[in-house]
Nucleic acid binder design. Sequence first.
RNA 1: GCGGGCAUGGCGGAAUCGGUAGACGCAAGGGACUUAAAAUCCCUCGGCCUUAGGCUGUCCGGGUUCGAGUCCCGGUGCCCGCACCA
Length: 868
Amino acid sequence: MASERYNPKTVESKWRQVWDEKKLFETKNDDPGEKYYVLEMFAYPSGRIHMGHVRNYAMGDVVARYKRAKGFNVLHPMGWDAFGMPAENAAMKNKVHPKEWTYQNIATMREQLKSMGLSIDWSREFATCDVEYYHRQQMLFVDFMAKGLVGRRVSKVNWDPEDQTVLANEQVIDGRGWRSGALVEQRELAQWIFKITNYNQDLLDSLDDLKDWPEKVRLMQKNWIGKSVGLELSFNLTQSLGNISTIETFTTRPDTLAGASFIGIAPEHPIAKQLAQTNQELSDFCVDVRRMGTTAEELETAEKRGFDTGLKVQHPLYPDQTLSVWVANFILMDYGTGAVFGCPAHDQRDYDFAIKYELPIIATFEALDEGTKSEENTAFLPPKSEKVRWINQPTGLDIATGEEAITKTIAWAEENNIGKAKEQFRLRDWGISRQRYWGCPIPVIHCEDCGEVPVPKSDMPVILPEDVDFDKPGNPLDRHPTWRHVDCPACGKKATRETDTMDTFVDSSWYFARFTAPREDNPTDPKVANDWLAVDQYIGGIEHAILHLLYSRFFSRAMCETGHLNVKEPFKGLFTQGMVVHETYKNSEGWITPAEIKIEEEDGKRVATLLEDGSPIIIGNIEKMSKSKKNVVDPDDIIESYGADTARFFMLSDSPPERDVIWTESGVEGTHRFVQRVWRLLSEAHQNMKNITAKPGAKGKALDISIAAHKTVKSIGEDLENLSFNKAVARLYELLNTLANPLTQIGQGKADVELTQATIDAVEKFILMFAPMMPHLAEECWVLLDKKDMVATTKWPDFEESLVTENELTMPVQINGKKKADITVSADASKDDIISATLSLDVVKKFLDGQEPKKIIVVPKRIVNVVI
RNA sequence: GCGGGCAUGGCGGAAUCGGUAGACGCAAGGGACUUAAAAUCCCUCGGCCUUAGGCUGUCCGGGUUCGAGUCCCGGUGCCCGCACCA
């Protein structure tokens, strides 16, 4: 019987329509079922979806559909991270309004995502640039402000004088603006900040509880928060400078104090600033060293530069000695106190500096015997150092180990009132001001009399004006004729609006909470949000391992403090998926897209030629799909030619989900063959399957099929719980290989009744198991089996323990650890039974050659090892 | 510099607790069907050898163990994160 090829195009759109009409994936907040919240990081509406999206959302959809089949009330929403610079760049380049550009992109990408057949509750969709959303974000802002979580800080920014805008560090290339090419200036600008550092200890400690996060991400966050404990130590100036008489330093190595040879202060340090007022040379120096770039390479190669201020401080251990105070380019004002004591014998930077400016190098470990010197502490011991001192002598302390040296020195400093123990964090407060148009307006009004006044909630939302132009550089909100001019809400006097907008990371820091009640007047309905949160499974790229996740963790805490939420950690489970990568192709003209070439095998080598004229193409490295390398594959094309199920299934096959997956044409074809094979086998068999009446029990081959199906249910269940999609896919291939022959027989009308009934059960399980990955195909196959309900509403198959546990098993027999034979024994065979079965084997007899074995190791159900 | 990870056939990868290494897929080779092609089906597929069977094999060198891809020590190579952070 000839069967038609499966046509995904017509089948897939049909089922999507059915799901849609039945509103199968709309989730109710009052559903009594146990909740499960699965979320993929929402998308930036850049224009079109790419394969990375397909992978991300395919994974999330498998989880959503699987959990739904397991009986959970699943929340699986989608939205758009829609504010941000690209919209403004497009506006400048193409004369299109950012709003129009953004919403058009959203419309395109929504349709693309829908063509994937994702089980998303689209009724909860929103974009962060919707007034309804940023209105609530402004409410959160003023609530945070009222709780003291918002601050204002003057900080240094990269200022592009031509574009009249602030640039991020990454946008400064060789000291020039990436767009304008103008020399970037350092400007001090008042910025709005969120006080994330209020929570630094809690953000650090709670990482230990995030057991379902990748260890790697927790570590990255831990390092980012960067707690270090040390000593804040004060040095007395020999002559006070105005009202400054001491210099505060921070060190994690107070035990090296005896080796201190100079004081280094940052160019922005108050002392440096004060001296610079009367010292032109110093002033020039400070400006000059800060012109330096901030990229890794520049820092790597940057030489240490210093300026001797002429000031001296007293050495706390040796009161008759003084240390000179230098302004040094490698000291950072915003870490610690902006001042250090340099100990060249034990620090590479201090050493480089001391060599250059001929400062003393004094080692400090004389008192420790060789055994207790730790490696890292002795890096620059003699002969490089000039003198050797040890902190025990001047302090009278009795210190034997490096560990003790730190704690005892801190205690000594505290007793003598020259310093105190200090916890230092690397984490800084979060500057959220952006001098841009396409973002959430900061709801504050500047009044000459009242200062910074939050916009009352009754006056919200502060709506972005739409009548703006992008002809000139800078922030259009600043140039708008009327928008910024308002009356002060407190005193009624004429005042001006804040024209900065919020960092787009703010928008993405609480969207997961908004999804729980997206049309609520308040930012959240706390009862509903607390029921849904935390997100049980969050899935997204590793690139958000630090900032987005940290900011979201801050926001949850801040929302708890302001009564919007009662869940501190927003993401219970986190999964970071790998990228989609592809071969690159090029010739002398440049990069070539995969669609333009042909690859053939010649003498075992793959040779690429240009389709157009057969000219040779170089096959380059496998790299992340990117427009610049032209190695992108458009999801639309794939879905058009193979269908969404094939695209989804391929994205989940082969590579473990946390690793990169290589997109190959042959791989996709292989996946598509599987789709067609499933359809062909089932459609050939379906007429005869319907005629078979159920008969209980199974033996022989039918039993084998049952066992295979039940085992697969067990293992795929485990695989999906662990998000090991690639393993689940392999199990599905295996099961189909087992089912293929019986199905062919049924198709030919050859099978006996008993065999086919077991097969039908197995086939049903098979369909239900691939359904989360290939939902359209599953529904269509379900119809073939004459099912009246839908796969999408059918529960996940069960397995019978008795069928999964073998009652007879084959154990390998090793002799001296090398496998020599197999024995088949019943599962409850005793050790003695197994041993006698083993000893009766011919191979074993041959090896023993009449001798007694030294030992026989029997691991029940696993292995037998005969030691001779 | 600091911190972390990885290394298995031609390729992607399995091996969940230290117990049969290479599941499953891709690529390749051979065969069947066909006038032919596509599609499909069957077989082979780590290496070496006298092909029943044997030896060898998970980056390299040691070690622990009856038994190591898996654990420990020491290397090599690649990848990632952070970084004048005191």
